[in-house]
Nucleic acid binder design. Structure first.
Lengths: 220, 220
DNA sequence: AATAAAGTTTAGGTAAATCTAAATAAAACG
DNA sequence: CGTTTTATTTAGATTTACCTAAACTTTATT
């Protein structure tokens, strides 16, 4: 199937929202995710339904079909492989690669994708810790992980960051938070859900609820 | 300046046509090059003139401005670097990379381009032998070798054969065409782009367009 | 259950890049 | 030099992906 870049971006976003909660994806949520207007989402939903990539009935939300999921996984595979390339081969830091991969992922060539994967040593996770689907669309389950916002353990290890906005990633970098960083939770403030953290050999600092929701951790 | 992919492709094609002959580029020639209609070219010419990337007066043809040339060289740089990457790192053969590079070239990031160049060892020519502009838009002399299909000189020397199919190589062998062979072009037939050739002390013979595209030559 | 609020869709419109057909200008020719 | 041919431009449509404003559904709240 020949998809436009816009269509691919919709598929990818629907996949992402379905992953977070397996209910139907709402028009509003998708509009927010894609930074567009609900009316535009409705337009595109009709088109993607026509192409049998989503199930959609008006007012009933959106879900990917099997075909749609397959498509999404191909896009995600390309995206994450390019992120690996940029970080491992071109020495980009993990917070700058998302936007570039966002463009590179739309070059649709299976041969290119598979050769790139091979060149990188068929990696199974990207620089943010997310699993990379293989050539058949098989993807390792995301690790047992919660957001720092929900975690209750005192000592944690950072395993992924779910938000790819450059601003956030730069902030985390400045604080010394990256994959594998070990964090100690000093205090949780009820009134605004902010969290005071400490990294070994560094002064403690506080992060907002919003940031804590984007940091995925596992207990150690 | 922020250009659409369509605009970039126009700029690149104008550059190419100007390179071949330094006169103004005609609407028709550009339409043929871009596989589009003359009317579309006229529309785009107005837009690119507005952006000061070309000089254009109606019925007078098109030429790149200094700014337009700079833009073209950036695009060509990206294209040729990606071709190097595909051939040298991903083991593509040189005849399959053009279309992929055509897509990759539109990812506009100076940082990516320069890092890619560095990663490849700052190559100065691409896998076809064409020079790669440096980060400042400086480019070495255009290569002397082309396919026999494109060459315009009458007397040529064979420098490479790009197709490895046994059938073709047997055919060339039978005709006495090998590396270093000197060819005289007797006639070019417009209707099917076939070419009549002569090798010293042998009877003349004709080759198809397809074959002529696989024979790389340089003028002597 | 009635009404308010929130969410979604429709209707109608815009901008980019294309097209066809018709009009006009430039070039080539007798 | 006028006429025909070729090249180019204009006019008007089309498609894709958006948008706003208004209408309509669904859900939440009294």
């Amino acid at each position: 199937m020949n998809l436009s870049i816009a269509e691919e971006n919709y598929i990818k976003s629907i996949y992402k929202l379905e992953e977070d909660s397996p209910d139907s994806v709402t028009t509003n949520a998708l509009a927010a995710e894609l930074d567009t207007k609900p009316a535009s989402v409705t337009d595109m939903a009709k088109k993607l339904k026509e192409k049998k990539l989503i199930d959609y009935e008006k007012y009933q939300g959106i879900n990917l079909t099997a075909e749609g999921k397959k498509t999404a996984l191909q896009i995600i595979r390309r995206h994450r492989l390019w992120e690996c390339f940029l970080v491992n081969k071109l020495a980009f830091s993990w917070e700058e690669v998302h936007e570039l991969a966002e463009e590179l992922e739309h070059v649709r060539s299976e041969k290119l994708t598979n050769r790139l994967s091979e060149f990188l040593g068929n990696p199974t996770t990207d620089p943010h810790g997310d699993p990379i689907p293989d050539a058949h669309g098989k993807m390792g389950k995301p690790r047992i992980q919660t957001s720092l916002h929900k975690a209750r353990a005192k000592r944690l290890e950072v395993v992924a960051v779910s938000d790819r906005s450059t601003a956030l990633l730069e902030f985390l970098n400045a604080k010394g938070i990256r994959l594998g960083t070990q964090l100690d939770v000093i205090e949780r403030y009820e009134f605004d859900n902010s969290i005071e953290l400490k990294i070994k050999n560094q002064p403690a600092f506080t992060i907002s609820e919003q940031v804590s929701k984007s940091i995925m951790v596992k207990p150690i």
